[in-house]
Design a protein around this nucleic acid. Structure first.
Length: 436
DNA sequence: TCTGGGGTCCTAGGACCC
DNA sequence: TCTGGGGTCCTAGGACCC
C-alpha cells in the first residue's frame, strides 16, 4: 500500500497506539549493557519517587510511584540498579522514536515522551496484524527500543489494545489489533474500568457503586443517558468503546495554551533570596519554551507552597497579574514574578516548591501589539527581542549559558540527581567510548 | 533528611448585564 | 413568607493523562 492510498483510503478510521516498554529503563539499558536484563529503577526529578521499573525490578516487588526514601533500603538490599532521570537522553531517544514511526504513516501524533498515535486509515483489518509487527520490529532494529502496539477503530480502543498487549505480552508478542466485535467484547470484558483511558480513580470508584466494573459493562451504557447524568467526558469514552470515534488526539493544537515551569527544591527553603533565585530561573525556562513555540504571554502567574507531607505549618498561595502588553521578554516576566513573590512570601515557613505560569498565550507576530506607553523600555523592545534570541541560541549551545543575575544569586534550591547516567547522545564530552 | 513535573479539558458558581 | 428570568463571561478547582 502506498502513502496516497493510506490518505485517500476508506472512510473508516484505524488508530494504532505505539508505546515504548519501560521507556526510561530501556534508554538507560541501551547505553549501559551491564543493565540489560537486570532489575533497574529510574527515579523522578529530585530523585523523588520511582517512575520507571524494568521487568526484573517489578518482579522483585518494587512499585511504580513509590517514594524513593521509603524503598531505597529495600532496593539496595535486593541489588537493584538505580538511575536519576536523564531527560537529555530520553528526549533525544523520543525524537528518534517518532522519526521511525513517521516512516509508517503520514499521520503520527506524539502523545507523550514515549507514546504516539499512528493513523492507519485505509488498511484492511486483516493486514493490520502484520503491519503492527512490522512497526514493532523495525523500531527495535533501528533504534533499539522495545515497543508494544495496540490497534483499533478509535483512539480509546487502540489504547485498550495496547494495554492488553502488555497484559498478554507473551501470547501476542506485543501486538494486539481489535479487528472483530467478538474480540473487542472479549477484551472489554477483561479490562477493569480503571484501565480505560480517561477513567481515573475517582470516576472508577463512582462507577463501581453502580455495578459497572469492566469496560464491557460501561460500553453497554447509553452515551446520551450517561452524558445527562454524568458528563460529556464519560459519554465520549463510552462512544469510543463502542467503536465510534469522537476523540482525536491529532486535532489537539500543538501550541501550548499555558507554559509552566516549576520544581520541588532539593531541600526545604525558608529564605526569600533563595526563592527569588529559583523563581527567576523558572521565568527564564518558561520564557525559552514560550519563544520556542513563537508565542507571547499576557499573564504571569506565580505559586509558592510548603511540603504537604511534612508535619509543619502549611502555606499554599498563588497569584496572577496581566502584563501591560503581551511579551516574550524574560526580564518582564522576572520583574512581574518577583513582585508577586514578595506578596505571596511570608516568613516562618519551609517552602518546598515555587513556579511560574505564563498564560493567555497569543502568536507573537512582529509588532502586532500595543506598546506600553508607561514603560520606557518598550521603546527598546526590538533590542530586547534580539537579546532574547541571542540568549536562547547561546543557551542551546553551551552548557553554562547566560542567566539573569537574579538566577545565580543562590543555589540551595537546585535539584537532586544523585544517580544520573551520561547524556550519551547529546553531549560531546559524554559520548560512549568503544574499547577494542 | 527524603513523596515529580507539565500539561489538558470541563464544570460550577460568582459577577455582571438588561 | 414572598424577593424575575435569562444570558454571558470569567475563574478556581477537579479530574485526568503520562
Amino acid at each position: 500500500m502506498t502513502m496516497s492510498e493510506v490518505i485517500t483510503g476508506k472512510h473508516e478510521q484505524v488508530w494504532a497506539l505505539v508505546d515504548a516498554k519501560s521507556f526510561y529503563c530501556s534508554c538507560e539499558q541501551l547505553f549501559d549493557p551491564t543493565l540489560v536484563n537486570k532489575p533497574l529503577v529510574v527515579l523522578s526529578n529530585n530523585d523523588g519517587c520511582c517512575v520507571a521499573l524494568s521487568e526484573q525490578a517489578k518482579a522483585l516487588g518494587i512499585q511504580r510511584g513509590a517514594p524513593w526514601f521509603k524503598v531505597e533500603r529495600d532496593v539496595r538490599m535486593k541489588g537493584i540498579q538505580v538511575r536519576s532521570s536523564n531527560y537529555n537522553l530520553y528526549a533525544d531517544m523520543s525524537r528518534r522514536f517518532i522519526e521511525e514511526l513517521s516512516k509508517f504513516s503520514p499521520c503520527v501524533e506524539q502523545y507523550s515522551i514515549d507514546e504516539a498515535f499512528v493513523r492507519l486509515d485505509g488498511f484492511k483489518l486483516e493486514q493490520l496484524q502484520d503491519y503492527g509487527h512490522e512497526i514493532k520490529d523495525t523500531i527495535y532494529k533501528n533504534i533499539g527500543l522495545p515497543v508494544r502496539v495496540g490497534i483499533g477503530a478509535t483512539a480509546t480502543l487502540a489504547k485498550l489494545g495496547n494495554h492488553a498487549a502488555k497484559v498478554y505480552e507473551r501470547k501476542v508478542n506485543g501486538v494486539i489489533q481489535i479487528d472483530s466485535d467478538y474480540k473487542r467484547d472479549w477484551l472489554l470484558a477483561r479490562t477493569d474500568i480503571q484501565n480505560i483511558w480517561g477513567i481515573g480513580a475517582k470516576t472508577a470508584t463512582k462507577l463501581r457503586t453502580l455495578g459497572i466494573d469492566n469496560a464491557l459493562q460501561l460500553s453497554q451504557k447509553s452515551a446520551p443517558e450517561m452524558r445527562r447524568v454524568w458528563n460529556v467526558v464519560l459519554a465520549r469514552t463510552i462512544m469510543e468503546l463502542q467503536g465510534v470515534a469522537c476523540i482525536a488526539p491529532g486535532d489537539i493544537d500543538e501550541t501550548r495554551k499555558q507554559i509552566l515551569s516549576s520544581r520541588s527544591f532539593g531541600q526545604g527553603i525558608t529564605e526569600f533570596e533563595e526563592l527569588k533565585s529559583a523563581l527567576a530561573f523558572h521565568c527564564q525556562r518558561a520564557g525559552e519554551k514560550l519563544r520556542k513555540q513563537g508565542s507571547q504571554a499576557n499573564i504571569v502567574g506565580v505559586f509558592l507552597r510548603t511540603n504537604r507531607y511534612k508535619q509543619l505549618p502549611q502555606r499554599n498561595r498563588s497569584s496572577a497579574v496581566a502584563l501591560m502588553c503581551p511579551s516574550q521578554d524574560n526580564y518582564k516576566f522576572i520583574e512581574s514574578a518577583l513582585l508577586q513573590l514578595k506578596q505571596l512570601y511570608k516568613e516562618g515557613y519551609e517552602y518546598q516548591k515555587v513556579g511560574v505560569i505564563l498564560d493567555e498565550l497569543t502568536p507573537a507576530e512582529n509588532n502586532s501589539f500595543q506598546l506600553d506607553m508607561f514603560d520606557t523600555s518598550a521603546y527598546d523592545e526590538a533590542k530586547r527581542r534580539d537579546l532574547m534570541v541571542i540568549t536562547d541560541m547561546m543557551n542551546a549551545k553551551f552548557k553554562n549559558g547566560i542567566k539573569p543575575a537574579s538566577v545565580i544569586a543562590t543555589s540551595n534550591w537546585h535539584m537532586k540527581q544523585a544517580h544520573r547516567s551520561n547524556r550519551w547522545t547529546t553531549r560531546l564530552d559524554e559520548l560512549p567510548i568503544a574499547k577494542c
